[in-house]
C-alpha cells in the first residue's frame, strides 16, 4: 500500500441524513453522510457539512473535500459546491 495525492473534488454516489446517531455523534444529528466519487476515480465516505435535510442533497451533486480538526483527530468531510 502506498500514499497517493488526489484532488478533493467529486460527486455524491449515495447519501443519507442520519437522524438516530451513534453515541459519539449525539448532539450533532441530523447530519449528512455521503459516499463520494472523487474526480481521480477513488471513492471515499465523509460527512457533508452544513446539511441536515435529505431533500437538499442528491446523487450526482458536486462536492469538495474539507478537513475538519476535532481535538487530536482530523476528519475528511465534504461541502456542496
Amino acid at each position: 500500500m502506498t500514499w497517493e495525492d488526489v484532488s478533493g473534488d467529486g460527486v455524491i454516489r449515495a447519501f443519507t441524513v442520519v437522524h438516530v446517531p451513534l453515541s459519539t455523534m449525539v448532539g450533532s444529528s441530523p447530519y449528512a453522510v455521503a459516499v463520494v466519487k472523487l474526480d481521480d476515480g477513488l471513492s471515499v465516505t465523509g460527512l457533508v457539512l452544513e446539511v441536515d435535510d435529505g431533500d437538499t442533497l442528491s446523487v450526482g451533486a458536486r462536492v469538495v473535500a474539507e478537513f475538519v480538526k476535532e481535538g487530536e483527530k482530523t476528519a475528511l468531510c465534504f461541502k456542496l459546491v
Partner: peptide, 11 residues
Amino acid sequence: AGFTFPGLYAA
C-alpha cells in the same frame, strides 16, 4: 465517518 447501520442502507 458517521455512518450508522440504517444509514448504510439509506445510502
